[in-house]
Design a protein around this nucleic acid. Structure first.
Length: 502
RNA sequence: GCCCCCAUCGUCUAGUCUGGUCUAGGACACGGGCCUUUCAAGCCCGCGGCAGGGGUUCGAAUCCCCUUGGGGGUACCA
């Protein structure tokens, strides 16, 4: 039987990067085995439901280069109010792929479970349930439903509001085979009579996921290990219905640097944020694939193309212990990918960041392209994220403040000497032809001798005068990028400021 | 509280299944050096770990038990 995996997000907000890592594992496994990836929307929680997050999730997957073979159809998406439904629609023969469109199926299975003696109706109020739990907690007992409605002399009528609960066996054990962790054994006595169908007619996750995974013929359930402890409840449903179980693979969760669940306070957590902060999708994808998986066997490679990952990923080698998300390492890897980009490619990727910072008009005028082409090689090996290009290059696009005088006077020189030095540089730069890095470099260097200053004194001060920054890309290229007119103007203003104080 | 999962440098990890070749290897970060007009990049060097305690064994990071620590679950959330 072929591999069929699913990604089943619930549209309750921005997808968390930890969940995305799990999607990456699913996707890699499916592609490697020439299987299918199914996207299913689990919108059974009506209270937290946010329809706007559906396209966000889909955009995020696409941005990371992950496609899906089956998923919501155009009609289904339109019914949910998704704009440009066409762009996201895939469809497939196991639909609908949105749980709110499958309510009748869940109800049918729930009723069948009652008939088979594996479920029962319950009309306990939330207040009563809370009281029971409070009492159990106070008494230090295992907190679970007290099964009040399980053996009522007169069962709860189907006509009054009620939920349907799973009738968990009172004895014995439920065994879950996990392909990554081995055999997991659970004592049935500790399993709750889980609600399967809520009063509002929607299924809970436990019912819906089992029904859908079965009907959609999912072969491998690859998900976070936070689902482990509730797995036996679902295994019981399979058993009750006489269905074959999928292969379970529980992968470790992703924590923040402090070992706690990764959250906004640690940094970016949603794909949208990573994108806006200037991470390359191919770098993030590579990084995510290594979060919990490694090629092993003395292999030391860490930078892998998508194709290599598809080829070499091994689901059954995935680690069992949680990983900490290291922004430092991601930044490093992003830099590796940025450096490997062609200059054309990098210009294209940088453009939106410059435009968002209002340094470059949108659309970018053709006349501006040569300037961008000049800039990119100067910053390529300095960038860790794309958005850093803005700070690195802003002074090449817009006018700067005149630097403070103490920055314009190098060690061992007076303000007057420095002013003279800058004027000499100014005169040179005003006339040099062409105003290109190669043409500028030699004459400028030769200026140090007659002036009796060091290269550091001259270039360092010139850097401050023309950029108002301590660190910049290589100076000769930078001057050329700024342009002769502006360079001369900036030096003049710097000299003027020095003359004020001397 | 109860249940479950996990445990190698600060972090990601190789090694654990199939004990010896591991005085534990790599990467990020960090420190130092080289290069150098600054910042990067690159190269070299360094720092740094088998959570603790019991077993089993000629021999344990590797197998078993306990403790500790971390994480997860404990909902008419997913």
């Amino acid at each position: 039987m072929g591999v069929r995996v699913r990604f089943a997000p619930s549209p309750t907000g921005e997808p968390h990067i930890g969940n995305i890592r799990t999607v990456v594992f699913n996707w890699l496994f499916a592609r490697q085995r020439f299987g299918q990836v199914i996207l299913r929307i689990e919108d059974t929680d009506r209270e937290r439901y946010q329809p706007a997050s559906i396209p966000v999730i889909m955009d995020g997957m696409r941005w990371l280069g992950m496609d899906w073979d089956e998923g919501p159809s155009r009609d289904a998406l339109e019914r949910l109010g998704v704009d440009h439904a066409d762009a996201y629609a895939v469809g497939g023969s196991y639909g609908p792929y949105i749980q709110s469109a499958r309510l009748a199926t869940y109800r049918r299975v729930a009723e069948e479970l009652i008939e088979r003696g594996w479920a029962y109706r319950c009309n306990c109020s939330r207040e009563r349930l809370e009281r029971v739990r409070d009492r159990q907690r106070a008494a230090g007992e295992h907190v679970m439903y007290d099964r009040h409605c399980r053996n009522l002399a007169v069962p709860v009528s189907p006509d009054e509001p009620h939920v349907i609960r799973l009738r968990v066996p009172l004895e014995g054990e439920t065994v879950v085979r996990d392909e990554i962790r081995g055999k997991l054994v659970f004592d049935n006595q500790l399993l709750d009579d889980q609600v399967l169908l809520k009063t509002d007619g929607f299924p809970t996750y436990h019912l819906a996921v089992v029904v859908d995974d079965h009907l959609m013929e999912i072969s491998h359930v690859i998900r976070g290990d936070d689902w482990i402890s509730s797995t036996p409840k679902r295994v019981l449903i399979y058993a009750a219905m006489g269905w074959d179980m999928p292969t379970y693979c529980h992968v470790p969760l992703v924590n923040g640097p402090d070992g706690q669940k990764l959250s906004k306070r640690h940094g970016a957590t949603s794909i949208t944020e990573f994108r806006e902060q200037g991470y390359l999708p191919e770098a993030l994808f590579n990084f995510l694939a290594l979060l919990g998986w490694s090629p092993g066997e003395g292999e030391e490679q860490e930078v892998f193309s998508r194709e290599e990952l598809v080829d070499r990923f091994d689901l059954f080698r995935v680690s069992t212990s949680p990983a900490t998300f290291s922004y430092d390492k991601l930044r490093w890897m992003n830099g590796v990918y940025i450096r490997s980009l062609s200059e054309e490619e990098l210009v294209e990727r940088l453009l939106p960041f410059w435009q968002r910072a209002d340094l470059v008009p949108d659309p970018c005028p053709e006349t501006m392209k040569p300037k961008l082409w000049r800039i990119v090689p100067l910053i390529q090996e300095r960038l860790k994220t794309l958005d850093e290009a803005v700070e690195w290059t802003a002074f090449m696009f817009v006018e700067i403040e005149v630097p403070p005088t103490d920055r314009l006077v190098p060690k061992g020189m007076t303000a007057e000497e420095s002013a003279q030095m800058l004027e000499a540089a100014r005169d040179l730069l005003a006339t040099i032809e062409p105003f290109e890095p190669d043409a500028i470099e030699q004459p400028l260097r030769e200026l140090t001798d007659p002036l009796g200053v060091s290269t550091g004194q001259l270039l360092g001060t010139l850097r401050w005068a023309t950029t108002n920054q301590k660190a910049t890309p290589p100076l000769f290229g930078t001057l050329a990028a700024i342009g002769r007119e502006r360079v001369v103007g900036r030096i003049d203003r710097a000299v003027a400021r020095l003359q004020e104080v001397s």
